[in-house]
Amino acid sequence: MKQDYFSANNIKYIDYKDIEILKKFLNPNGKIVSHKRSGVTSKNQRALTSAIKHARFMGLLPFVVK
């Protein structure tokens, strides 16, 4: 993913309930993919990170995958 996924798909607000999208940015251990690897703009990476953390809190995404 070289280009920003969210601007390419015209996503203006990153929602914590969209777990299908958020899962793309998790590595096999459930960690958030780094800004360098995800290719997302800094602004969107910050929004993405908080969306993933909100989803984790609500039990939609795991904190760790063993």
Partner: peptide
């Protein structure tokens, strides 16, 4: 969880 959000529909998965 209470969040600030936008009026528009945000789910388009």
């Amino acid at each position: 969880l209470i969040l600030k959000t936008v009026k528009e529909n945000t789910i388009a998965a």
